[in-house]
Design a protein around this nucleic acid. Structure first.
Length: 430
RNA sequence: GGCCCUAUCGUCUAACGGUUAGGACGCCGGCUUUUCAAGCCGUUAAUCCGGGUUCGAUUCCCGGUAGGGUCACCA
């Protein structure tokens, strides 16, 4: 523990980052930040056929959006010289050799570099699973490079982790079975063994690993759907990790302060979008009004923000509400059916109540025309006359909508003159 | 199939040998300023099975079963 903690996230740029993939990055980063260590992102681009620039960009864009700050960035291909050097060294020491092969496919290569497997049992300690042992004999003399300039990821990864001083390898559980061969390479190279922590997988409803093929959404798609980064970060962390108390909503700083590897779950977790929606709403509610407006990225009456926070679970939903539940801000033209609740209230009753309300409104001074004030004045009347009969016509006269906030809030928002105008228009129709 | 990992409400999880097995999401029901949300209250719901160890197992051990991961000249 004397050494400074160094972790890394090593994605291959072969697809957009999804909740499963980024989880390894988040945990490695959380662990580094919690221990005041260093966090590295290394793009594993040794597979030139499948690696794409756009995916690399998507990875960095997603991390940045989530607030996962990076101390150092590498690209594996930048280290080709070093990989070749150590490949030659291993061969010189007879720990690896050039192997003649019969090509598997048309035009395949006839030579590859294989590792001299010492055929031993490798035991390592995993921070989440405890001790794990493998007999590496099954691995045979596995291939570590296609050629001196084309190392395979097992080899390149070990070299890079060593050179970059990585002390803790935090990654998905799908890598446990890769670990023994990487340890063998480390030992041949004389590289130190880092600590390992293999995270449980995140699965879809079918309980298999999340993958783009099965429609796992990219982080950037969640953003487009109106999710905010605080919620994604919090939710993704809670999938497979749990604090010692019952707190559920965490800010980024709280997550860093609370995160430890020993509270990481051993078993895989199913991704539940419903709970994500709840997390999103909770974090949306916690945003300051200013911040909320900024995230909405559109002009909005600031008085609407607290109401939107209460009702909308995503930013997209909030934007939609501006034209539905809050469409009354732009005007209202209720039908007679709406005003009378499809005839449940007679036109005469509705009309009389509206006239009475207009009269009461007239007597409220402009500066006292607030939701609370209006309610105080109207409530006794509504209670005496039948709340449904009074409040429904009023709400629909003002909103023209089946769904809206309550009539007092609407009235406060519209102001006295507008209310009187809309009530008069409704009375006219009845 | 070999090897490895895992196993508590539908889902995320708590309980590091002794609890009426706790919380959250969802569902359902109720209440509320009788629209729609939100909010509040409540209900429903779980230790995979079988053996041990122990005075006592969700917890420790073994076996079974089930699920997953991995077995590339991908990462």
């Amino acid at each position: 523990m004397a050494d400074k903690v160094v972790t890394r996230f090593a994605p291959s740029p072969t697809g957009n980052l999804n909740l499963g993939g980024v989880r390894a990055g988040i945990f490695a980063w959380l662990f580094a930040r919690h221990n005041k260590g260093k966090f590295i992102v290394r793009i594993e681009d040794t597979d030139k056929e499948r690696s794409k620039k756009e995916f690399e960009e998507n990875i960095f864009e997603s991390l940045q959006w989530l607030g996962v700050d990076i101390d150092q960035k590498y690209r594996q291909s930048e280290h080709a010289g070093r990989h070749e050097e150590l490949l030659r060294k291993l061969i010189a020491e007879d720990k690896a050799y050039i192997s003649k092969e019969k090509p598997k496919e048309e035009g395949g290569r006839t030579e590859v570099i294989r590792f001299h497997n010492p055929n031993k049992v490798v035991t390592f300690f995993d921070a989440v699973h405890g001790q794990i042992s493998f007999d590496t004999t099954d691995l045979k003399d596995f291939i570590i490079a296609k050629s001196f300039t084309e190392p395979l990821f097992h080899f390149a990864l070990v070299v890079d982790d060593w050179d970059e001083g990585v002390t803790h390898v935090v990654r998905g559980e799908d890598h446990v079975s890769n670990t023994p061969r990487q340890i063998l390479i480390q030992e041949a190279l004389g590289a130190p063994r880092p600590e390992y922590a293999h995270l449980p997988l995140i699965t879809g409803a079918d309980r298999t690993k999340l993958s783009k093929r099965k429609g796992a959404m990219a982080i950037t798609e969640y953003r487009a759907l109106g999710y905010i980064s605080e919620a994604i970060l919090n939710f993704d962390t809670m999938l497979g990790w749990h604090p010692s108390d019952e707190q559920e909503i965490f800010s980024k700083e709280e997550l860093i302060a609370a995160f430890t590897l020993d509270r990481v779950q051993k078993s895989p977790a199913v991704l539940d979008e419903t709970k994500l929606l709840w997390f999103n709403h909770e974090h949306l509610k916690r945003l300051s009004d200013n911040e909320y407006a900024k995230r909405l990225e559109q002009e909005i009456d600031p008085r609407l923000i607290p109401l939107l926070k209460e009702r909308a679970k995503t930013l997209v939903e909030a934007r939609e509400m501006l034209t539905t539940e809050f469409g009354f801000m732009q005007g209202a033209s209720p039908s007679v059916e709406l005003l009378t609740q499809d005839g449940k209230i007679t036109a005469e009753v509705a009309s009389n109540h509206l006239k009475a309300i207009a009269d009461m409104f007239e007597h409220i001074p402009d500066e006292g025309f607030s939701a609370a004030q209006i309610k105080d004045i109207l409530w006794p009347y509504a209670t005496a006359q039948g709340r449904g009969d009074v409040l429904w016509p009023l709400r629909t006269a003002l909103s023209g909508a089946t769904k809206s906030p309550d009539p007092f809030i609407i009235a406060g928002l519209l102001g006295k003159a507008e209310c009187l105008a809309r009530i008069a228009a409704a009375v006219e129709k009845l």
